[in-house]
Amino acid sequence: MITQLTVNGIIAGCTYALVAMGFTIIYGTVRFFHFAHGAIVAVAAYTAWAFMAYLGMPFAMAAIISVVAAGGLGVLMDRFVYRPLRQRKSPSLILLLASFGMFLVVQNILQFVFGSDIKMLRGGAASEGHRLFGAVITSTQLWIVASSVILAVAALWFLRKTGFGKSIRAVADDQVAASLVGINSERTVSMAFFLGSALAGVAGILVALESNVYPAMGLNAVIKGIIAALIGGMGSIPGALLGGLLIGFAENVGVWGISSGWKDAISYAVLVAFLLFRPGGIFHTDLELRKV
């Protein structure tokens, strides 16, 4: 049973990690909690569903369009809500509230447009998964694990090696200095939102494959994503990946000896422990929370 619980933990952890990576990239650049990140998770899932159900698109195509749409929505949120607030020098608490508001608005729009019943990306018969060291894992779940790892590596490469990535990191370090050396900071912030939101989009589609599409799916995703990002160290991509895996593992293996009703409580307990004893997260980043 322990192998099965570990596998369950890794799978759950990978989806948390994807959300956390997007969240952490955006946080690193603009330094506030982009809570509406969760809404983007749900929007991507609904977009994919709508393209498949209404236009009969094959899954891969619908998925790619939805990921791009998710990225685009992130950019729009930044352009029309966050940027005006930033230009007014609003404190990050105001940005957080605006973000929270957008989360609720988007979630309600989804509910209004699509109804609150569950939509399925993956229909048909349930087939038994593959056996792996005594645990069972389905093909969808293998996809989840593979995409998370590949995307983590790709995001890291993008941030470290490409010009855009470097400008994101420069703006993250010091916005004023970055613009002094000729980096267009607004464009860079847009890029960070696109990248982060596209990652959330991938997470949304993978979560939807695993457990279907419903309006409130973004809330759980973003909360676990934020916990994972905090545990990993805000702004750190490898941290987000490890943080996600750690809480996925903790909440699934942690209920081995106790009632499974405690699952969510375990992730929060891990978060509190980190905040108390290692506030910078696994990868002790210098983006500490008191700057929020």
Partner: peptide, 21 residues
């Protein structure tokens, strides 16, 4: 065995594994 899950949960594999054991 008696296992429970939260009202908004969508991943039940751990509960299922514990019950099945």
């Amino acid at each position: 065995a008696e296992e429970s899950y939260a009202e908004d949960a969508t991943d039940f594999r751990t509960q299922i594994a514990k019950v099945a054991a």
